[in-house]
Design a protein around this nucleic acid. Structure first.
Length: 505
RNA sequence: GUCCGGUUCGUCUAGGGGUUAGGACACCGCCCUUUCACGGCGGCAACACGGGUUCAAAUCCCGUACCGGAUACCA
C-alpha cells in the first residue's frame, strides 16, 4: 500500500519545536518510503475544529515555519473544519447503527481557570472504581431517545464502548499497547451543539485522506485507543501508529510558549539567522538516531537512513539557559548551525548571506557583478568564526559598509592601552600610501611593510595588528589582519587607519 | 487516584549478556597564533536504586524511587 502520512497541527500557537520535529519525522518517513514508491505522500492537515482557540494568524505562523524548514505538503492542505458536516454524518451513522447513543445530560459549564487541574482532580476523586459504562442514557430505548431528540432536547452523541474487552495495537516505537475497555469512557463524538470532537474528526479525516501511518507525539497514546474504537465501529482497519517521545524543557517539565517564550518557536530560529538545513539536522537527532557516530547529515542522507525503529522511547530535553545570553538556545543547535555556516559549500551559503545583507540594507548589486569575486572571497574569509547568518551583518558589517560601530571592549583592549597607536596608525597609513604606489597590496607585501614598521616603532606586531583591527573592523575578533587588509583593499585600509573616530569614543 | 510510558556523562546519544561503557555538544587545559575563532591533542564526566536469573547483567526478569504523558461536550 502506498505510504501516506500527515502532519496535523492545531492552529493555536506558532509552530513549536516539538511539532516541527513531528513534521520532520513524518516528512522523512514519507520521503524514505518514496525511495521505493514514488507515490508516497506527506500531507498537511490543519486541525482547526476548536473554533474558540484556532486563529488564522497561528495557521500562518505554522505554515511559515514549515515553509522555512522545507516541508511542503504533496497535496492540498486539508482544513479539518471544512469536513465538519462529514464528521456529523459519521456520528449520525453510528447512532443509527446503535454503535453510539444520545446523551441528554446537560452540558457542564466549563470550569474556568485551570481546566487540566480540574480534570485531574475529578479523575482522582472518581478513583479506580469509576464505572465507565454508567451513563444513564446508554441504554435508553431507541424510541424514547428519538422522541426526546425530536422534541428538541439537546444531546451529545457518545460512542457505545463494549462492556468488556480491550483495544490493542502494535506501536512502531513503544511496542504492543493494550488498554482495557474499563479504562475508556464512552467518549463524546459530537457535542450537543453539533460540533464534532477531535477523536471523531481525526479518524474520519485520516480515513478520508487514506493515511497509512500516523506518526505523532506520545501525548496521543491514549487517544489512539479511543480512535481504534472508532475505527472498529466504522469497520475500517486502523493505520499503523508510531508515537514519538516528547521534547521537554531543561527542568524536564513541559516546554510551553507561556513559560519559555520564543525559544520554542520555529520562526525565532529563522529570524535569528539559523539555516533550515542545520536546524533540521539538529531536530532529527532529538529522539532519533541512525545508530552510528555520524552527526552531520544532509537531507538526502536523513531520508535514506530514517526509520521508525531508530526512534527512542524516552523524552529528550531541549537544553538552554534563559539567564545566559550565550546559551539562549540549545548549544548543540548553535554548534550545528555554526558548523553548517563554515563548512557548507560556499555557493549554497551565498544566497543566504545575500538575503541577510539585503535585510540589513548592506547589499550592493555589484556583489553580483563586478565585485562578485571579492564578495565571495570575503564571505568565505569571515564565515569561519560566525554562528548565524546575522553575524554577517553585525560582526561582519565593516566589510560591507563604511558605517560601522566600534566595540568598546575592542577599543579598551587594543587602542586605549597603547596611546602611541593614535599617532602610529595614521603613520602606517602614510607608509602604505608610500609603499604601495605600484606594489600589489597583497598579504606577502603587507606583512613585509607592517613588520618593518613594527620594528621601527620598537613594539610588538600584535599591538599594531590589533590596533589596526579595531580601526578597520570595529571589533576585536576576526580573520588574520593580513587578509583583512588585503580584503578591505589599500584605499579603505588607509582611510580607516587615519580615522580618529574610534579614539573619540 | 488510576492507566500508560521512560530512566547510560550537565545535554543529545551509541551500545541490548563478556566493551578500558564509544561519540557529539558544553566545560577545562595544551598546541597553533597579530586577536578571536577554526583545527589538532588531551582532560573532566554516566549505566537511578534494590533484588533475582546467569559462570558472567548497563544489557533479561521483578520490585522501589523518580520523571513524564493521559484521564474534557480541548486538540
Amino acid at each position: 500500500m502506498t505510504t501516506r502520512v500527515r502532519f496535523a497541527p492545531s492552529p493555536t500557537g506558532y509552530l513549536h519545536i516539538g511539532s516541527a520535529r513531528t513534521a520532520l519525522f513524518n516528512y522523512l518517513f514519507a520521503r524514505h518510503a518514496g525511495l521505493t514508491d514514488p507515490d508516497s505522500k506527506f500531507l498537511l492537515r490543519i486541525e482547526d475544529t476548536d473554533l474558540a482557540r484556532s486563529t488564522e494568524e497561528s495557521t500562518r505562523s505554522i505554515l511559515d515555519g514549515l515553509e522555512w524548514l522545507g516541508f511542503a505538503p504533496d497535496e492540498e492542505i486539508v482544513f479539518q473544519s471544512d469536513n465538519a458536516e462529514k464528521h456529523r454524518e459519521t456520528a449520525r451513522k453510528l447512532l443509527t447503527e446503535g454503535k453510539a447513543y444520545r446523551d441528554f445530560t446537560p452540558k457542564e459549564a466549563p470550569s474556568d481557570a485551570n481546566i487540566k487541574d480540574a480534570i485531574k482532580e475529578r479523575a482522582r476523586e472518581q478513583g479506580a472504581d469509576k464505572n465507565m459504562r454508567d451513563n444513564p442514557f446508554r441504554d435508553l430505548p431507541r424510541d424514547e431517545s428519538d422522541a426526546r431528540a425530536a422534541a428538541g432536547e439537546p444531546f451529545a452523541i457518545r460512542l457505545r464502548v463494549a462492556e468488556s474487552g480491550k483495544t490493542s495495537f502494535e506501536d512502531q516505537v513503544y511496542g504492543l499497547q493494550e488498554r482495557d475497555y474499563s479504562e475508556i469512557e464512552d467518549l463524546v463524538l459530537l457535542r450537543s451543539d453539533g460540533h464534532p470532537l477531535y477523536n471523531l474528526a481525526v479518524v474520519c479525516d485520516d480515513i478520508e485522506m487514506a493515511i497509512t501511518h500516523v506518526i505523532r507525539g506520545q501525548d496521543h497514546l491514549t487517544n489512539t485507543h479511543k480512535q481504534i474504537l472508532i475505527y472498529e465501529a466504522l469497520g475500517v482497519t486502523p493505520p499503523v501508529f508510531a508515537h514519538l517521545p516528547l521534547i521537554m524543557a531543561p527542568n524536564k517539565g513541559k516546554l510551553s510558549k507561556r513559560k519559555h517564550g520564543e525559544v520554542v518557536s520555529m520562526t525565532t530560529y529563522r529570524d535569528a539567522g539559523f539555516l533550515a538545513e542545520a536546524f533540521r539536522n539538529y531536530l532529527a537527532l532529538l529522539g532519533w538516531s541512525a545508530g552510528e557516530e555520524q552527526e552531520i547529515y544532509s537531507l538526502d542522507e536523513l531520508v535514506a537512513k530514517f526509520s521508525l525503529s531508530g526512534i527512542h522511547r524516552s523524552n529528550a530535553i531541549f537544553n538552554f539557559s534563559p539567564d545566559d545570553p550565550r546559551k539562549w538556545t540549545d548549544d548543540k543547535a548553535q554548534w550545528m548551525n555554526a558548523e553548517y555556516i563554515r563548512t557548507m559549500p560556499l555557493d549554497e551559503l551565498l544566497p543566504h548571506v545575500k538575503a541577510e545583507l539585503k535585510a540589513a540594507k548592506l547589499w550592493r548589486e555589484e556583489y553580483e557583478e563586478d565585485d562578485r569575486a571579492w564578495y565571495e572571497r570575503t564571505v568565505d574569509l569571515i564565515r569561519a568564526r560566525f554562528f548565524t547568518l546575522k553575524d554577517f551583518s553585525s560582526q561582519g558589517r565593516a566589510y560591507f559598509s563604511e558605517d560601522y560601530d566600534f566595540d568598546s571592549a575592542a577599543i579598551e583592549k587594543n587602542l586605549s592601552k597603547f596611546p602611541d597607536l593614535r599617532v602610529w596608525l595614521p603613520e602606517l597609513a602614510e607608509r602604505f600610501e608610500a609603499e604601495f604606489g605600484d606594489k600589489p597590496f597583497n598579504e606577502t607585501n603587507i606583512e613585509l611593510v607592517v613588520r618593518a614598521f613594527t620594528e621601527e616603532k620598537g613594539t610588538k606586531l600584535g599591538v599594531i595588528m590589533n590596533g589596526a583591527r579595531t580601526l578597520l573592523t570595529g571589533v576585536a575578533v576576526g580573520p588574520s589582519m593580513l587578509s583583512v587588509f588585503e580584503t578591505l583593499g589599500l584605499e579603505r585600509s588607509i582611510i580607516r587607519l587615519r580615522s580618529q573616530l574610534a579614539w573619540s569614543q
